[in-house]
Simulated assay, not measured.
Amino acid sequence: MATIFRDWTEGHSKGWGVEPLKISHNLHEHPLFSKEGLGELIQSYPIEHYSLIRTSSVGETKKVWRRGEVGDLTGHEVIEKIAAGGLWLQLRELKSVDRRYDDLLQEIYAEARERVPGFDSFGHEMGILISSPHAKAHYHADLPGQALWQIAGSKRVYLYPAEEPYLPQPELEKIALTGLEVGLRYEPEFDRQALVFDLKPGEMLTWELNAPHRVENHGELSISMTTEHWTDEIRRSQMLTVANGILRQHFGIVPKRRALHGPAFWAKASLQAGWRRSPWFKRERRKMLPVDFRLGRGANNPIVDIPAYVVR
C-alpha cells in the first residue's frame, strides 16, 4: 500500500504531538504541488481565502508586514514575483476551494491515525505557503496541532518551549481571543533554548501544542504545506485559554487554574461559549490586516500601493 510518510519509526508514534519530530514524506512528488498545478490553483483562488504578505527578509532589521492582492497576474506570474523576493503567499482553506486537496488531507490524517495509537483528530485544515528566498516568518504561535511540510526549496525553523518566558500566558490568551497569531514578544536570547531544524523537500516537522516558532527561508523560492488538527484535549485547552483571556482582559481577573476537567473547567467552558455569541467576539475579530497593495507587472514596480480595504 502506498504511504505518504516515509521511514516512520516507533519513536515517531510515541512522540507525535508531544515533541518536535522531523519525518520524511513523498508529497513533494505529488502532481498537486507541481508549479503547473499551483499556478492553476492560484489563478482562481478567492481573495477571502488567501493572504499575500509583503514581509521582511533575513538580515532586515525593520519588521515589514503588509497584506496585498495578486491583481490581474496569472498564477505563474505570481510565483515569479514571489521568487523575485520579499513576498509570502498563504492559500488557506484549501479543502473548501479544491476537493482534490481535501481528499489528500483525509489520506494524511487516516495514515497518521493508523500509525499513532489513540490519535483521534478532527477539524483538519490544509494550507499552502509560497515564499521568497530569504523571507522569514516572525516569531508566533498557533492554536491547533500543527505540521509543516516542505515541498520545494529549503528553510530553517526555530522552535521554542511552550512556556514562560517564550510563551507568556496573557499573550497566548490574546491570540485565542483575536485569532491573530503574530505579535508575540521575541528576544534574541530566546535562541539559546531554541531547537533548530533545516527542512528540505520531502521532510515535514511537527511539534508540541502552542510551541512558538519562527522561520527563515534559505536562498531559493520555498513551497510548503501546513496542516492543522484538533483533538478533544486540544479543544479543551483552547476553550480554557479563551475563558482565561476573557477573565483577564474584560474583568481584570488573573486566572490561576488550567485544569481540563472538573467543575472549574466546565464553568469556563460556559463562559467562553457565551462570549462567542456576544458583541465582544465580533469586535475582537474585526482587527484584521487591511489590503493596501497589489502586485505590479513591471520589474521596477513589483508593489503598487492601493487604497486600503479589509477582506471579510
Rank of each mutant, 00 (worst) to 15 (best):
residue 80 E to S: 09
residue 250 H to F: 15
residue 86 G to S: 05
residue 171 E to R: 05
residue 202 G to Y: 02
residue 24 S to F: 14
residue 28 H to I: 05
residue 255 P to V: 13
residue 235 R to Y: 00
residue 39 G to M: 06
residue 16 W to I: 09
residue 20 P to K: 00
residue 103 D to W: 04
residue 304 V to A: 02
residue 167 L to F: 09
residue 161 P to A: 02
residue 194 A to K: 00
residue 119 F to N: 03
residue 282 K to V: 11
residue 32 L to Q: 04
residue 97 V to P: 06
residue 40 E to M: 07
residue 239 M to F: 14
residue 148 L to T: 05
residue 95 K to N: 15
residue 192 R to E: 15
residue 158 Y to R: 13
residue 12 H to K: 02
residue 67 R to I: 02
residue 155 K to T: 10
residue 29 E to L: 09
residue 153 G to S: 05
residue 282 K to R: 09
residue 223 I to T: 03
residue 165 P to Q: 03
residue 298 G to L: 12
residue 4 I to P: 10
residue 210 N to W: 07
residue 42 I to T: 05
residue 49 H to N: 12
residue 62 K to E: 15
residue 239 M to V: 12
residue 78 V to T: 03
residue 162 A to R: 01
residue 123 G to S: 11
residue 146 Q to A: 08
residue 284 E to V: 06
residue 288 M to Q: 14
residue 264 A to Y: 10
residue 109 Y to V: 04
residue 160 Y to C: 15
residue 245 G to M: 06
residue 72 D to P: 06
residue 41 L to V: 01
residue 182 V to S: 13
residue 286 R to L: 01
residue 127 G to V: 02
residue 285 R to N: 15
residue 82 I to A: 03
residue 242 V to F: 04
residue 225 M to Y: 09
residue 184 L to D: 06
residue 217 N to S: 03
residue 134 H to T: 00
residue 81 K to C: 04
residue 294 R to F: 01
residue 98 D to S: 12
residue 150 Q to M: 04
residue 264 A to K: 11
residue 140 H to G: 11
residue 23 I to M: 02
residue 69 E to P: 11
residue 306 I to H: 15
residue 301 N to F: 11
residue 204 M to Q: 04
residue 102 D to Y: 04
residue 281 F to Q: 09
residue 14 K to M: 12
residue 74 T to C: 08
residue 173 E to T: 00
residue 166 Y to F: 07
residue 9 T to P: 08
residue 205 L to V: 08
residue 171 E to I: 13
residue 4 I to K: 04
